[in-house]
Design a protein around this nucleic acid. Structure first.
Lengths: 391, 391
DNA sequence: TAAGTTTGTTTAATGAATTTACAAACTTTC
DNA sequence: GAAAGTTTGTAAATTCATTAAACAAACTTA
């Protein structure tokens, strides 16, 4: 049931709020926090001192006076602990060590051939262990591991189904927790990417956004009111399987005419293969387009059109403020953007479109890995913090 | 910013929880509430006595003993106040007076010809006034008015756009608040319907559901974690404008091949009109189908197919536990259900489908009006209550 | 140098929940 | 039918986080 209230809860709430302001608006003084939050100076003082006690906050000396005693400025101590984030891809893996602010301390990028689940998880563990070992000395040490995976994850952190990896039912979370004795969070790569963009990328100032990850398939992470929306059963929609042609070709999901049959990397490569009469990869298509190959550019533009079709559906179905396009295909921004925007202009309802932004990711291939690390940090703080919203 | 915590907040939280249990699990004793909530008996006693003081709760005498002193059973006093709910339709209007439990005390059903905004709002006011006047004497009197409308509403309760009514920018909330001096809540009819089904209909025990209202257009109300999801800008998606054929016929929304061009009442009537060579209405089609007219039954089945196409999109995009189909077309359940279920079986992903239920509304044309009344009740309680969720 | 401002701490008061104790009202059991 | 055990609900004392008010320290400005 719902959480009951007591003094302990009140303290947690207020401590969370104070820490939040120090994390986002630092350097900041106790007096300023009191002013912003409406808490009394005494309360803020007491909470800040506890936060300093627990090494999460530091005093960094006096700030500028505005006509009275100089304020003591406070800073969030990002170096009180470190987090690990991993973006597990189909042929590669990007792993980072970040501090508690999300700053990347170290980064490992590794290719793999996905020979077996065991081989990849072994590589995953080796990579993580290496990062843990290079983590600087700190009060809390490595506080957790976050993982973004190309598939559906349940609430217990089991990777239920990852078609592009060919994996099914891998209990990744419990394996990693057993291996490292650290809290582990696992989520879909699009969800992680959405959180990454929200925290560190273009979505920083937006409460409602959708991150569309265009890779071999298409996935989306949905942020509503600054929080990740995971759908009913813990994993959000497989947006790539919204049909854009009810009598279209059969998809492996069972449905017909799914969006990702038209607008994914897989779709692009297949179409290119057919037209050029041989297998190609994304990299070569990108360089061909770059050198002005009209046929290839046409392919990208066609993809932009289909991207737009699905994006219009997202707009009409979810009504977000901001759509961020990421994933491997984001590299084709140059040729994708125009047909996409043209289509939006033509086909979306004027009401929702008015305040809508559509952009390609700034973080590029780091959205997911940063989001994953951020999961770990969030989990660390969630263990001691709570929040309330008034109705 | 986020709400800070103090003793007042603690009390509100706990009072809300206690009242919630009395509302849902009554008759219930103080001791039982203490046991369920984890609050101490003393705290519960004190809060319950305040609730009795404010007439929201009543003692109704001793209950069965389980081997000790008999418990004093508590009941929510639904008659402490009354709410008004209105479902504003394109050609009719259904208005109810309910008590605080949502029990319908009186119901008015009125036809209108939508001659002008003024004519309809005048009728609306007359209808509401009549209900207010018939409300029984009570402690709080009529506590508010809830309204479900076939269009897009902003956060200030302005009806921005209602294509089927032909209305634009009508400040309904402020008009009604000025007229009656009561709190007014206005929302889309599909949102209201979703809440109605959640509170009083088939969705009572489901935390995540989608109510699809199939009328002249198609709308959907989305309930996530027991709460209505309104999308980014206060009104949730116009799900009827998700395209199911990217190169289909042009819709008035600007896009092509929108779902509601295939699966709405409007679509059905148009198709029937073409095939029969003259204009028909839903009622006559339903009676024709009832008497076994194979051609008309085929039309319904065709519609069932297209309904299914959109429902698969909803499943893949939102991943709900429960889809409830309502609106005027729900009367065609008999012929719509089979083709719809057949299509789901064939086309939806096995993972989400496993725990999914799809049903037609039990409340029939009352989902929206009951949801609207429930908005008013919720607003009434929201003014004194708050809740917290632990991360 | 005096006056005014700003910061942050100290002290006392407030009030909601908890803990402990207990009386009242039952049922069960011998 | 009395004794023992249970359950309910209230009462008194305690705890503790916030607030309010007062204040000292540190700084700017006139």
């Amino acid at each position: 049931m719902k959480q009951t209230g007591d003094l302990n809860l009140v303290k947690k709430i207020n401590k969370t709020i104070v820490l939040h302001h120090i994390r986002t608006d630092s350097p900041i003084s106790r007096a300023k926090i009191a002013e912003i939050t409406g808490l009394t100076k005494a309360t803020v003082s007491s909470l800040v001192n506890e936060l300093i006690e627990s090494s999460l906050v530091q005093e960094i000396g006096a700030g500028e006076s505005s006509g009275g005693r100089k304020p003591m400025m406070l800073l969030f101590n990002g170096m009180a602990g470190y987090a690990i984030g991993v973006d597990l891809g189909v042929h590669d893996m990007l792993a980072v060590l970040t501090d508690l602010t999300g700053k990347v301390i170290r980064e490992n990028r590794i290719q793999h051939h996905n020979e077996s689940v065991e081989q990849v998880t072994h590589l995953l563990k080796t990579t993580i262990r290496e990062l843990i070992e290079t983590a600087p000395e700190s009060v809390y040490g490595v506080i957790g591991i976050g993982l973004g995976v190309p598939g559906i994850v349940d609430e217990e952190g089991n990777l239920l189904f990852a078609p592009n990896l060919g994996w099914e039912n891998v209990p990744l979370q419990s394996q990693l927790e057993a291996e490292f004795g650290l809290p582990v969070v696992i989520d879909n790569e699009a969800n992680a990417g959405a959180v990454g963009e929200k925290q560190f990328g273009a979505g920083k100032d937006t409460a409602n956004l959708i991150y569309v990850s265009i890779g071999m398939g298409i996935g989306a992470g949905i942020i509503i009111k600054n929080e990740l929306y995971r759908g009913a059963t813990g994993f959000s929609g497989e947006i790539g399987h919204i049909s854009i042609q009810h009598d279209g070709p059969k998809c492996r999901c069972g449905s017909l005419g799914c969006w990702e049959l038209y607008a994914s990397e897989h779709a692009l490569l297949e179409q290119a293969g057919r037209e050029l009469g041989r297998e190609v990869d994304l990299k070569s298509l990108l360089s061909k387009a770059e050198s002005g190959d009209a046929g290839v550019i046409k392919l990208f533009e066609r993809l932009g059109y289909y991207l737009g079709v699905g994006v219009v559906n997202i707009i009409n179905g979810y009504n977000p403020e901001f759509i961020i396009l990421g994933g491997r295909l984001a590299g084709g921004e140059k040729w994708l953007m125009k047909p996409l925007l043209d289509l939006l202009e033509k086909r979306s309802l004027p009401h929702p479109r008015k305040q809508l932004k559509v952009e390609f990711s700034e973080l590029r291939d780091r959205s997911t890995v940063l989001g994953a690390a951020s999961f770990a940090v969030t989990k660390f703080f969630a263990s001691t913090t709570v929040s309330v919203e008034r109705n």
